[in-house]
């Protein structure tokens, strides 16, 4: 299967592709990941951690 891709990947069309390709799917996926990270952190830090017994104050 390597052959076809190799043909695609000749160096000449490199610069053209750069301007054409907008990774919108990537931005979407990573945006979802970002939201999950923030929500998980808010839960684990502010609810789970700060809500536990014996908070260390000194």
């Amino acid at each position: 299967m390597g052959r076809n891709e190799a043909a695609h990947a000749s160096a000449s069309d490199v610069s053209g592709d750069t301007e054409e390709f907008d990774p919108i799917g990537t931005l979407t996926l990573i945006g979802i990941y970002f939201v999950i990270l923030v929500l998980s952190w808010v839960y684990i830090y502010y609810i789970e951690f700060l809500g536990r017994d014996l908070i260390v104050v000194g």
Binding site: F49, R52, D53, L54, I55, V56, V57, G58
Partner: peptide, 24 residues
């Protein structure tokens, strides 16, 4: 480590770990 709470520290020979907690 006081299991299930935030009271947790390393205990290293030669050092004294100091942690203050408030009990309910």
């Amino acid at each position: 480590e006081v299991a299930g709470t935030n009271a947790n520290t390393m205990v290293v020979p030669g050092e004294v770990a100091e942690i203050t907690v408030e009990t309910d």
